[in-house]
Write a protein that binds this DNA or RNA. Structure first.
Lengths: 203, 203
DNA sequence: GTCTATAGCCAGATAGAC
DNA sequence: GTCTATCTGGCTATAGAC
Protein backbone atom coordinates (compact mmCIF):
# COMPACT_ATOMS: atom_id res chain seq x y z
CA UNK A 1 0.00 0.00 0.00
CA UNK A 2 2.84 2.40 0.75
CA UNK A 3 4.40 1.15 -2.47
CA UNK A 4 1.29 2.11 -4.37
CA UNK A 5 1.19 5.53 -2.79
CA UNK A 6 4.84 6.06 -3.62
CA UNK A 7 4.40 5.12 -7.22
CA UNK A 8 1.44 7.39 -7.51
CA UNK A 9 3.29 10.36 -6.11
CA UNK A 10 6.31 9.71 -8.25
CA UNK A 11 4.13 9.48 -11.33
CA UNK A 12 2.08 12.52 -10.37
CA UNK A 13 5.29 14.50 -10.09
CA UNK A 14 6.56 13.28 -13.44
CA UNK A 15 3.29 14.14 -15.16
CA UNK A 16 3.22 17.60 -13.64
CA UNK A 17 6.86 18.10 -14.56
CA UNK A 18 6.14 17.08 -18.13
CA UNK A 19 3.43 19.70 -18.50
CA UNK A 20 5.56 22.48 -17.09
CA UNK A 21 8.86 21.57 -18.77
CA UNK A 22 7.22 20.97 -22.14
CA UNK A 23 5.67 24.42 -22.09
CA UNK A 24 8.39 26.46 -20.40
CA UNK A 25 11.59 24.56 -21.01
CA UNK A 26 14.33 23.88 -18.47
CA UNK A 27 15.14 27.54 -17.86
CA UNK A 28 11.58 28.81 -17.65
CA UNK A 29 10.21 26.04 -15.44
CA UNK A 30 9.86 26.56 -11.69
CA UNK A 31 9.96 23.75 -9.14
CA UNK A 32 7.21 25.49 -7.17
CA UNK A 33 4.91 25.43 -10.18
CA UNK A 34 5.54 21.73 -10.70
CA UNK A 35 4.82 21.05 -7.04
CA UNK A 36 1.58 23.03 -7.23
CA UNK A 37 0.44 21.17 -10.32
CA UNK A 38 1.23 17.82 -8.67
CA UNK A 39 -0.54 19.03 -5.51
CA UNK A 40 2.38 18.16 -3.28
CA UNK A 41 5.11 20.04 -1.49
CA UNK A 42 8.24 21.32 -3.17
CA UNK A 43 10.44 19.26 -0.86
CA UNK A 44 8.93 16.07 -2.25
CA UNK A 45 10.25 16.87 -5.68
CA UNK A 46 13.75 16.68 -4.29
CA UNK A 47 12.91 13.59 -2.28
CA UNK A 48 11.98 11.71 -5.45
CA UNK A 49 14.22 13.27 -8.08
CA UNK A 50 17.02 14.89 -6.09
CA UNK A 51 17.41 17.96 -8.28
CA UNK A 52 15.72 20.02 -10.96
CA UNK A 53 18.32 18.79 -13.43
CA UNK A 54 17.53 15.13 -12.78
CA UNK A 55 13.79 15.72 -12.91
CA UNK A 56 14.28 17.49 -16.19
CA UNK A 57 16.30 14.61 -17.56
CA UNK A 58 13.56 12.16 -16.63
CA UNK A 59 11.08 14.31 -18.55
CA UNK A 60 13.37 14.65 -21.53
CA UNK A 61 14.05 10.93 -21.77
CA UNK A 62 10.36 10.21 -21.56
CA UNK A 63 9.64 12.72 -24.32
CA UNK A 64 12.24 11.27 -26.61
CA UNK A 65 10.97 7.81 -25.80
CA UNK A 66 7.57 8.81 -27.15
CA UNK A 67 8.99 10.47 -30.23
CA UNK A 68 11.41 7.75 -31.30
CA UNK A 69 8.77 5.09 -32.11
CA UNK A 70 6.98 7.60 -34.30
CA UNK A 71 10.15 8.04 -36.29
CA UNK A 72 10.88 4.34 -36.40
CA UNK A 73 7.52 3.89 -38.08
CA UNK A 74 8.65 5.61 -41.19
CA UNK A 75 12.19 4.37 -41.07
CA UNK A 76 11.86 0.68 -40.33
CA UNK A 77 8.58 -0.78 -41.41
CA UNK A 78 8.26 -2.86 -44.54
CA UNK A 79 5.63 -1.06 -46.54
CA UNK A 80 6.34 0.57 -49.87
CA UNK A 81 7.77 4.09 -49.98
CA UNK A 82 4.62 6.01 -50.91
CA UNK A 83 2.49 4.09 -48.46
CA UNK A 84 5.07 4.71 -45.76
CA UNK A 85 5.03 8.43 -46.33
CA UNK A 86 1.25 8.46 -46.23
CA UNK A 87 1.04 6.44 -43.05
CA UNK A 88 3.74 8.39 -41.29
CA UNK A 89 2.26 11.77 -42.12
CA UNK A 90 -1.19 10.80 -41.01
CA UNK A 91 -0.07 9.16 -37.77
CA UNK A 92 2.52 11.77 -36.90
CA UNK A 93 0.08 14.65 -37.16
CA UNK A 94 -2.43 12.77 -35.01
CA UNK A 95 0.34 12.14 -32.49
CA UNK A 96 1.33 15.79 -32.24
CA UNK A 97 -2.24 16.92 -31.89
CA UNK A 98 -2.24 14.77 -28.74
CA UNK A 99 1.16 16.04 -27.52
CA UNK A 100 1.33 19.55 -28.89
CA UNK A 101 4.37 20.82 -26.99
CA UNK A 102 6.48 17.71 -27.25
CA UNK A 103 8.44 18.04 -30.49
CA UNK A 104 9.21 21.67 -29.83
CA UNK A 105 10.41 20.82 -26.34
CA UNK A 106 12.78 18.14 -27.61
CA UNK A 107 14.15 20.29 -30.40
CA UNK A 108 14.52 23.31 -28.19
CA UNK A 109 16.45 21.55 -25.47
CA UNK A 110 18.64 19.84 -28.05
CA UNK A 111 19.49 23.25 -29.44
CA UNK A 112 20.51 24.48 -26.01
CA UNK A 113 22.42 21.30 -25.17
CA UNK A 114 23.81 19.86 -28.40
CA UNK A 115 25.80 17.34 -26.36
CA UNK A 116 22.53 15.57 -25.52
CA UNK A 117 22.64 14.25 -29.05
CA UNK A 118 25.64 12.10 -28.26
CA UNK A 119 23.84 10.54 -25.31
CA UNK A 120 20.75 9.90 -27.41
CA UNK A 121 22.62 8.17 -30.17
CA UNK A 122 24.02 5.71 -27.65
CA UNK A 123 20.49 4.53 -26.83
CA UNK A 124 19.35 1.11 -27.97
CA UNK A 125 16.32 2.15 -29.97
CA UNK A 126 17.73 5.27 -31.51
CA UNK A 127 16.21 5.53 -35.01
CA UNK A 128 18.43 4.92 -38.02
CA UNK A 129 17.63 5.94 -41.59
CA UNK A 130 19.70 3.19 -43.24
CA UNK A 131 16.69 1.20 -44.37
CA UNK A 132 14.93 4.33 -45.62
CA UNK A 133 18.02 5.20 -47.67
CA UNK A 134 17.96 1.78 -49.34
CA UNK A 135 14.29 2.14 -50.15
CA UNK A 136 14.83 5.52 -51.75
CA UNK A 137 17.77 4.21 -53.79
CA UNK A 138 15.64 1.28 -54.92
CA UNK A 139 12.72 3.45 -55.96
CA UNK A 140 15.07 5.66 -57.98
CA UNK A 141 16.63 2.66 -59.71
CA UNK A 142 13.21 1.26 -60.55
CA UNK A 143 12.12 4.60 -61.92
CA UNK A 144 9.28 5.08 -59.44
CA UNK A 145 10.61 8.40 -58.18
CA UNK A 146 12.86 11.17 -59.43
CA UNK A 147 16.47 11.19 -58.26
CA UNK A 148 16.74 12.76 -54.79
CA UNK A 149 19.11 12.32 -51.89
CA UNK A 150 17.46 10.27 -49.17
CA UNK A 151 18.68 12.77 -46.56
CA UNK A 152 16.99 15.64 -48.34
CA UNK A 153 13.76 13.73 -48.68
CA UNK A 154 13.87 12.77 -45.02
CA UNK A 155 14.46 16.37 -43.96
CA UNK A 156 11.54 17.45 -46.14
CA UNK A 157 9.20 14.92 -44.59
CA UNK A 158 10.20 15.96 -41.08
CA UNK A 159 9.94 19.65 -41.91
CA UNK A 160 6.48 19.43 -43.45
CA UNK A 161 5.16 17.42 -40.53
CA UNK A 162 6.78 19.08 -37.54
CA UNK A 163 7.15 22.75 -38.45
CA UNK A 164 3.46 23.66 -38.64
CA UNK A 165 3.22 22.88 -34.91
CA UNK A 166 6.43 24.59 -33.84
CA UNK A 167 5.70 27.64 -35.92
CA UNK A 168 2.04 27.90 -35.04
CA UNK A 169 2.01 31.39 -33.49
CA UNK A 170 4.08 32.82 -36.33
CA UNK A 171 2.06 31.06 -39.01
CA UNK A 172 -1.35 32.00 -37.65
CA UNK A 173 -0.19 35.61 -37.62
CA UNK A 174 1.17 35.49 -41.17
CA UNK A 175 -1.73 33.73 -42.78
CA UNK A 176 -4.08 35.76 -40.61
CA UNK A 177 -6.40 33.07 -39.23
CA UNK A 178 -7.68 32.32 -35.76
CA UNK A 179 -6.79 29.24 -33.74
CA UNK A 180 -9.90 27.35 -34.78
CA UNK A 181 -9.30 27.81 -38.48
CA UNK A 182 -5.62 26.97 -38.04
CA UNK A 183 -6.53 23.67 -36.43
CA UNK A 184 -8.69 22.84 -39.43
CA UNK A 185 -5.73 23.56 -41.66
CA UNK A 186 -3.52 21.29 -39.56
CA UNK A 187 -6.10 18.56 -39.70
CA UNK A 188 -6.29 18.81 -43.49
CA UNK A 189 -2.56 18.30 -43.59
CA UNK A 190 -3.02 14.68 -42.53
CA UNK A 191 -3.72 13.94 -46.19
CA UNK A 192 -2.40 17.09 -47.90
CA UNK A 193 1.21 16.67 -46.84
CA UNK A 194 1.53 13.11 -48.11
CA UNK A 195 0.21 13.96 -51.55
CA UNK A 196 2.39 17.05 -51.70
CA UNK A 197 5.49 14.93 -51.04
CA UNK A 198 4.47 12.15 -53.39
CA UNK A 199 3.70 14.62 -56.19
CA UNK A 200 7.11 16.17 -55.67
CA UNK A 201 9.03 12.93 -56.17
CA UNK A 202 6.94 10.60 -58.32
CA UNK A 203 7.73 10.32 -62.02
CA UNK B 1 31.78 63.44 -29.07
CA UNK B 2 29.83 62.35 -26.02
CA UNK B 3 26.94 61.66 -28.34
CA UNK B 4 29.10 59.35 -30.39
CA UNK B 5 30.31 57.51 -27.32
CA UNK B 6 26.74 57.08 -26.13
CA UNK B 7 25.57 55.69 -29.40
CA UNK B 8 28.46 53.30 -29.49
CA UNK B 9 27.77 51.96 -26.03
CA UNK B 10 24.08 51.64 -26.68
CA UNK B 11 24.77 49.73 -29.88
CA UNK B 12 27.46 47.60 -28.28
CA UNK B 13 24.95 46.57 -25.64
CA UNK B 14 22.27 45.77 -28.18
CA UNK B 15 24.67 43.66 -30.24
CA UNK B 16 25.86 41.75 -27.20
CA UNK B 17 22.26 41.28 -26.07
CA UNK B 18 21.31 39.93 -29.48
CA UNK B 19 23.99 37.26 -29.36
CA UNK B 20 23.04 36.12 -25.87
CA UNK B 21 19.26 36.30 -26.26
CA UNK B 22 19.28 34.62 -29.65
CA UNK B 23 21.19 31.67 -28.27
CA UNK B 24 19.74 31.37 -24.79
CA UNK B 25 16.31 32.95 -25.01
CA UNK B 26 14.77 35.34 -22.48
CA UNK B 27 14.83 32.86 -19.60
CA UNK B 28 18.30 31.48 -20.18
CA UNK B 29 20.03 34.82 -20.77
CA UNK B 30 21.94 36.56 -17.96
CA UNK B 31 22.44 40.30 -17.73
CA UNK B 32 25.98 39.70 -16.44
CA UNK B 33 26.83 37.68 -19.53
CA UNK B 34 25.53 40.43 -21.80
CA UNK B 35 27.55 43.03 -19.88
CA UNK B 36 30.69 40.90 -20.19
CA UNK B 37 30.20 40.45 -23.91
CA UNK B 38 29.66 44.19 -24.36
CA UNK B 39 32.70 44.83 -22.12
CA UNK B 40 30.81 47.20 -19.86
CA UNK B 41 29.33 47.08 -16.41
CA UNK B 42 26.01 45.50 -15.55
CA UNK B 43 24.67 48.80 -14.24
CA UNK B 44 25.02 50.34 -17.68
CA UNK B 45 22.56 47.87 -19.12
CA UNK B 46 19.94 49.30 -16.83
CA UNK B 47 21.05 52.84 -17.53
CA UNK B 48 20.35 52.38 -21.23
CA UNK B 49 17.50 49.88 -21.30
CA UNK B 50 16.00 50.11 -17.80
CA UNK B 51 15.21 46.38 -17.41
CA UNK B 52 15.97 42.97 -18.82
CA UNK B 53 12.45 42.87 -20.23
CA UNK B 54 12.91 46.09 -22.19
CA UNK B 55 16.32 45.05 -23.47
CA UNK B 56 14.80 41.78 -24.58
CA UNK B 57 12.00 43.58 -26.39
CA UNK B 58 14.51 45.73 -28.25
CA UNK B 59 16.28 42.56 -29.37
CA UNK B 60 13.05 40.87 -30.35
CA UNK B 61 11.82 43.83 -32.39
CA UNK B 62 15.13 44.03 -34.18
CA UNK B 63 15.02 40.31 -34.97
CA UNK B 64 11.53 40.50 -36.36
CA UNK B 65 12.52 43.59 -38.29
CA UNK B 66 15.17 41.54 -40.08
CA UNK B 67 12.87 38.62 -40.71
CA UNK B 68 9.86 40.52 -42.03
CA UNK B 69 11.53 41.84 -45.23
CA UNK B 70 12.60 38.30 -46.06
CA UNK B 71 8.99 37.24 -45.91
CA UNK B 72 7.77 40.25 -47.83
CA UNK B 73 10.04 39.18 -50.65
CA UNK B 74 7.98 36.15 -51.38
CA UNK B 75 4.68 37.71 -50.57
CA UNK B 76 4.75 41.04 -52.32
CA UNK B 77 7.06 41.15 -55.28
CA UNK B 78 5.77 40.95 -58.81
CA UNK B 79 7.58 37.98 -60.25
CA UNK B 80 5.81 34.85 -61.39
CA UNK B 81 4.96 32.15 -58.82
CA UNK B 82 7.68 29.63 -59.68
CA UNK B 83 10.34 32.29 -59.93
CA UNK B 84 9.21 33.72 -56.63
CA UNK B 85 9.53 30.38 -54.88
CA UNK B 86 13.00 29.89 -56.33
CA UNK B 87 14.21 33.34 -55.35
CA UNK B 88 12.77 33.16 -51.87
CA UNK B 89 14.22 29.75 -51.10
CA UNK B 90 17.66 30.70 -52.30
CA UNK B 91 17.76 34.04 -50.52
CA UNK B 92 16.14 32.83 -47.32
CA UNK B 93 18.63 30.02 -46.84
CA UNK B 94 21.51 32.43 -47.44
CA UNK B 95 19.97 34.77 -44.89
CA UNK B 96 19.70 32.12 -42.20
CA UNK B 97 23.23 30.92 -42.78
CA UNK B 98 24.22 34.48 -41.81
CA UNK B 99 21.84 34.63 -38.80
CA UNK B 100 21.62 31.03 -37.68
CA UNK B 101 19.83 31.54 -34.34
CA UNK B 102 17.38 34.17 -35.45
CA UNK B 103 14.33 32.29 -36.74
CA UNK B 104 14.43 29.87 -33.87
CA UNK B 105 14.64 32.74 -31.40
CA UNK B 106 11.62 34.47 -32.87
CA UNK B 107 9.54 31.32 -33.04
CA UNK B 108 10.53 30.21 -29.58
CA UNK B 109 9.65 33.46 -27.90
CA UNK B 110 6.38 33.66 -29.80
CA UNK B 111 5.52 30.24 -28.46
CA UNK B 112 6.18 31.37 -24.91
CA UNK B 113 4.35 34.67 -25.38
CA UNK B 114 1.57 34.14 -27.91
CA UNK B 115 0.26 37.63 -27.12
CA UNK B 116 3.31 39.09 -28.89
CA UNK B 117 1.58 38.12 -32.09
CA UNK B 118 -1.10 40.72 -31.55
CA UNK B 119 1.51 43.44 -31.10
CA UNK B 120 3.34 42.31 -34.23
CA UNK B 121 0.26 42.37 -36.40
CA UNK B 122 -0.30 46.00 -35.46
CA UNK B 123 3.06 46.96 -37.04
CA UNK B 124 3.14 48.88 -40.26
CA UNK B 125 5.18 46.47 -42.31
CA UNK B 126 3.72 43.26 -41.05
CA UNK B 127 3.69 40.83 -43.98
CA UNK B 128 0.38 39.88 -45.54
CA UNK B 129 -0.22 36.89 -47.80
CA UNK B 130 -3.14 38.43 -49.70
CA UNK B 131 -1.18 38.96 -52.87
CA UNK B 132 0.34 35.47 -52.67
CA UNK B 133 -3.16 34.03 -52.35
CA UNK B 134 -4.29 35.79 -55.53
CA UNK B 135 -1.25 34.52 -57.41
CA UNK B 136 -1.94 30.95 -56.35
CA UNK B 137 -5.59 31.22 -57.32
CA UNK B 138 -4.54 32.63 -60.70
CA UNK B 139 -2.03 29.89 -61.36
CA UNK B 140 -4.67 27.26 -60.56
CA UNK B 141 -7.20 28.89 -62.88
CA UNK B 142 -4.67 29.06 -65.66
CA UNK B 143 -3.79 25.42 -65.18
CA UNK B 144 -0.14 26.07 -64.32
CA UNK B 145 -0.36 24.33 -60.95
CA UNK B 146 -2.51 21.68 -59.32
CA UNK B 147 -5.28 22.86 -56.97
CA UNK B 148 -3.87 23.63 -53.53
CA UNK B 149 -4.88 26.00 -50.76
CA UNK B 150 -2.57 29.00 -50.72
CA UNK B 151 -2.24 28.67 -46.94
CA UNK B 152 -1.04 25.09 -47.21
CA UNK B 153 1.46 25.99 -49.89
CA UNK B 154 2.71 28.90 -47.81
CA UNK B 155 3.13 26.69 -44.75
CA UNK B 156 5.02 24.16 -46.85
CA UNK B 157 7.41 26.77 -48.17
CA UNK B 158 8.09 28.09 -44.69
CA UNK B 159 8.50 24.61 -43.24
CA UNK B 160 10.94 23.43 -45.88
CA UNK B 161 13.06 26.53 -45.53
CA UNK B 162 13.06 27.14 -41.79
CA UNK B 163 12.87 23.73 -40.16
CA UNK B 164 16.26 22.39 -41.29
CA UNK B 165 17.88 25.13 -39.20
CA UNK B 166 15.66 24.82 -36.15
CA UNK B 167 15.88 21.05 -36.14
CA UNK B 168 19.59 20.86 -36.86
CA UNK B 169 20.73 18.93 -33.77
CA UNK B 170 17.90 16.43 -34.10
CA UNK B 171 18.36 16.01 -37.83
CA UNK B 172 22.13 15.57 -37.72
CA UNK B 173 21.61 12.85 -35.12
CA UNK B 174 18.91 11.10 -37.15
CA UNK B 175 20.61 11.15 -40.50
CA UNK B 176 23.91 10.48 -38.74
CA UNK B 177 26.18 13.09 -40.29
CA UNK B 178 28.66 15.53 -38.81
CA UNK B 179 28.25 19.30 -38.80
CA UNK B 180 30.39 19.78 -41.89
CA UNK B 181 28.38 17.35 -43.99
CA UNK B 182 25.13 18.79 -42.66
CA UNK B 183 26.15 22.26 -43.81
CA UNK B 184 26.74 20.88 -47.29
CA UNK B 185 23.27 19.42 -47.24
CA UNK B 186 21.83 22.78 -46.16
CA UNK B 187 23.71 24.53 -48.90
CA UNK B 188 22.36 22.11 -51.51
CA UNK B 189 18.90 22.98 -50.35
CA UNK B 190 19.23 26.45 -51.89
CA UNK B 191 18.26 24.81 -55.18
CA UNK B 192 16.82 21.48 -54.01
CA UNK B 193 13.93 22.95 -52.04
CA UNK B 194 12.62 25.11 -54.85
CA UNK B 195 12.52 22.26 -57.34
CA UNK B 196 10.92 19.99 -54.75
CA UNK B 197 8.11 22.49 -54.24
CA UNK B 198 7.67 23.23 -57.92
CA UNK B 199 7.56 19.52 -58.78
CA UNK B 200 4.92 19.05 -56.11
CA UNK B 201 2.54 21.62 -57.55
CA UNK B 202 3.20 21.97 -61.29
CA UNK B 203 0.95 20.16 -63.71
C1' DG C 1 6.55 9.71 2.85
C1' DT C 2 5.09 14.20 3.60
C1' DC C 3 5.20 18.52 5.57
C1' DT C 4 7.08 23.49 7.34
C1' DA C 5 10.74 26.39 7.78
C1' DT C 6 14.84 28.10 6.31
C1' DA C 7 19.55 28.09 4.46
C1' DG C 8 22.25 29.75 0.72
C1' DC C 9 22.84 31.45 -3.58
C1' DC C 10 22.24 34.07 -7.57
C1' DA C 11 20.13 37.39 -10.60
C1' DG C 12 17.96 41.84 -11.56
C1' DA C 13 17.89 46.28 -10.11
C1' DT C 14 19.41 50.61 -7.62
C1' DA C 15 22.36 54.08 -4.90
C1' DG C 16 25.83 56.94 -5.08
C1' DA C 17 30.80 58.17 -6.03
C1' DC C 18 33.55 59.82 -9.78
C1' DG D 1 28.29 58.14 -18.79
C1' DT D 2 30.55 54.74 -16.24
C1' DC D 3 31.90 52.48 -12.32
C1' DT D 4 31.71 49.74 -7.43
C1' DA D 5 28.98 48.26 -3.89
C1' DT D 6 24.80 46.73 -2.28
C1' DC D 7 19.84 45.75 -1.78
C1' DT D 8 16.03 42.78 -2.59
C1' DG D 9 13.54 39.07 -4.13
C1' DG D 10 13.12 34.62 -5.85
C1' DC D 11 14.72 30.13 -6.60
C1' DT D 12 16.94 25.54 -5.64
C1' DA D 13 17.93 22.72 -2.15
C1' DT D 14 18.17 20.89 2.63
C1' DA D 15 17.17 20.23 7.75
C1' DG D 16 14.29 18.41 10.72
C1' DA D 17 9.57 17.56 12.80
C1' DC D 18 5.76 14.44 12.30
Amino acid sequence: MEKLKTENTEIEILNAAKEIFHQKGMDGARMQEIADKAKINKALLHYYYRSKQLLFEAVFKSAFGLLAPQLNNILNDDSDLFEKITKFTNSYISFVIKHPYLPNFVIQELNKNPEFVLKLRAEKHFPSIDKFKLQVADAIKQGTIKPIEAEQLFINIMALNIFPFIGEPLLTALINVDKKRYNEILSNRKTEVASFIINAIKI
